[in-house]
């Protein structure tokens, strides 16, 4: 549109008029930055799904859920319930300012 392709050969493109190292380092850093910050959430999502499935299958296998007898999980459960009820309260429309 405003200009033409600036390079006639691949070697010229890679050399960037002598600033090849700096220019390409910046683009590599940028690419890593973008890709990592898009893939990491996708990976984390898979992890969450996996964790959930594992928990579910364990709970359906064992009637007495040994995992949940551990105090840590028990606490987490209680905390979860607490958070849930707090959420409900927080999301209620109406008399809040």
């Amino acid at each position: 549109m405003l200009a033409e392709i600036q390079f006639t050969s691949l070697a010229e493109f890679l050399a960037m008029g002598g600033y090849g190292f700096n220019v390409w380092s910046v683009y590599v850093i940028f690419a890593v930055f973008v890709i990592v910050n898009l893939l990491a959430p996708l990976h984390r999502r898979k992890q969450i799904v996996r964790e959930f499935k594992r928990r579910e299958s364990r709970q359906s296998q064992n009637v007495t859920d040994f995992d949940n007898l551990e105090s840590g999980n028990r606490q987490e459960d209680l905390q979860g319930q607490l958070n849930e009820s707090r959420d409900k309260a927080a999301n209620l429309p109406g008399d809040r300012k």
């Binding site: 549109m1 200009a3 392709i5 600036q6 390079f7 960037m16 220019v23 910046v26 683009y27």
Partner: peptide, 28 residues
């Protein structure tokens, strides 16, 4: 933006092809 920046920006009379760095740097 990447293709435009890498292929089409003419070299600056002072900074040469390093303006390609600035495209990324300024945006980020």
């Amino acid at each position: 933006a990447l293709v435009w920046a890498l292929l089409y920006i003419p070299p600056d009379y002072q900074q040469g092809y390093t303006t390609r760095i600035l495209v990324i740097h300024v945006a980020v």
